[in-house]
Amino acid sequence: MTAMCDVAFLLLTFFMLTTKFKPDEAIKVEIPASVAETKLPDKDILMLQVDKEGRVFYGIDNQGVRQTLFNKIKERHPEIAFQPQNERAFMLMDAFGVPLEELPNLLNDPKNYPQKGLSLDTTKNELGELLLFGRQSNPAVRIAIKADGNADYDKVKEVMNILQKRNINKFNLITSTRQKPKP
């Protein structure tokens, strides 16, 4: 009995320490599978998500970084009327997908405000700007694209083009694992 109890608690400790609860995701993205074997690092990730409908979401990890990012946006866009409590809401938000001018509305009601995706408009180039801010807020950041397998390639290409315009030629595509077939 004692031995069994020991084993049970050993396993319990192991699972408790290794478990990381899945954070709430803003959008549902079903990633395609590949045989790639590189693991995605845990931190310093700037994630661009593309969902099935082609909406683009922008997310960066670490609340401190998000705070810096928020202040950069505020500084650069004085025309957007942010409220004081918005900063806190922005820090807690994993990813957002609205044009910048709608950001205060989203932050006032993060749960219910409909997100229609970032604007990829080339004249405003908000995504490009956000990428720049993201890299300024955390210089060690890596860019990752997490797109739904059923999203049109078109949208992903657009995102990639914006990345390349910002001279980001190296990025990661997030996939799930698949067994490598034997030759």
């Binding site: 590949s34 790639a36 390349q164 315009k165 001279n167």
Partner: peptide, 12 residues
């Protein structure tokens, strides 16, 4: 954990 496929694009 999700895997990452690294892509290197040529300069534009």
């Amino acid at each position: 954990k999700p895997q990452a496929m690294e892509v290197n694009m040529p300069e534009k």
